Simulated assay, not measured.
Amino acid sequence: MQFLIVRKADHDSEAGVMPSRELLEAMGEYIDTLAAEGRLLAGEGLKPSSAGVRVTFGPGRKAITVDGPFAETKELVAGFSIIEAASMEDAVAWVKGWPAEDAHGQAEIDIRPIGCPGGLSGFGNPSEEESPKPRYMVMLKANERSETDWNPGPEQLGRMSEANRAGHEAGFLIAGHGLSSSRHAKRVTFGKGKPTVLDGPFAEIKEMVAGFWVLRVDGIDDVIAWAETFPFPDGDDARLEIRELWRMEDLIPA
């Protein structure tokens, strides 16, 4: 099974504070075993919401954008990993070992099973690779309908599949995955480094993520233009958040 591990934002991540050498070393040691086993499929950090936008749609599917920063700091995404685990219990066990050097021992992590409720296949790899172009994560925000594990039906799923295929073959749409509702999720919070596990569903529906895509393009305007044409399951009612991913060279200066 694949799981999306979401590191929630905090004051430091929203302020753009760079990770310390101690944190980088601790995270490196933490993920080494999983990576050596081939079960770490991705690990990415997002730039602060001050560099992001939120998108809704007006007449003619014209994007209406609101620039960050956004106020709901604790519900924003600061980073994510995609891992392979035998079960949710195994994923939780791994997250319980999250380095205490992160977030001063107060990190908050959501664990979400990857998989579109309608059965649409995920694809791609969001990793940086050797490209000078920036990468952007497009998060489709959840709503009451998506939180019921709503299936939009074969016609809509077919349009989405074709759009995913076309973007992926064109080389700019490098990854995309659907998520089951938060009722299947777990949340791990840390107090003085000690984990507490909470069961979903969670109340913050408007800030939950129902699915995501990663694009490698020249700039955020290209992402917005793509969003104006993509057949999201909620159509013109879709709500999106677009955030740029950090490059490794930004996080680890020479």
Score class of each variant (00 low, 15 high):
Ala63Arg: 00
Arg21Trp: 13
Glu204Trp: 06
Arg187Ser: 05
His184Trp: 12
Leu157Ile: 11
Ile242Phe: 06
Thr73Trp: 07
Pro48Asn: 13
Glu37Leu: 11
Asp67Phe: 09
Ala166Phe: 01
Trp226Arg: 01
Gly153Ser: 02
Gly176Leu: 11
Phe190Ile: 08
Gly122Pro: 01
Trp98Met: 04
Leu157Phe: 03
Thr189Arg: 06
Asp12Asn: 10
Gly68Tyr: 10
Ala63Trp: 00
Glu72Thr: 05
Val6Tyr: 10
Glu155Cys: 06
Ala86Tyr: 05
Pro19Met: 02
Ala103Arg: 07
Ser182Gln: 06
Glu25Cys: 01
Asn125Met: 00
Met27Val: 14
Pro233Arg: 06
Lys74Ser: 15
Ala227Met: 14
Arg54Thr: 14
Gly118Ile: 00
Pro59Trp: 05
Glu204Ser: 12
Gly167Val: 02
Gly124Ile: 08
Ala63Val: 02
Glu155Gly: 03
Ala227Lys: 09
Cys116Val: 04
Pro19Glu: 06
Glu130Asp: 15
Gly52Gln: 04
Pro152Val: 11
Ala42Ser: 10
Ile111Val: 12
Asp221Gly: 05
Ser121Met: 14
Asp90Ser: 15
Thr65Asp: 06
Val17Gly: 03
Glu147Trp: 08
Pro99Phe: 03
Arg54Val: 12
Thr73Cys: 07
Val55Lys: 03
Ile252Asp: 05
Leu46Asp: 04
Phe202Lys: 10
Ile174Tyr: 02
Pro152Trp: 12
Glu144Val: 14
Glu84Trp: 00
His104Ser: 15
Glu144Asp: 15
Val95Gln: 00
Gly153Ala: 08
Trp150Thr: 05
Asp234His: 10
Ser181Gly: 05
Leu157Gly: 10
Pro113Ala: 07
Val197Glu: 11
Met248Asp: 15
Ile224Thr: 09
Glu101Tyr: 09
Phe57Pro: 00
Ala107Glu: 08
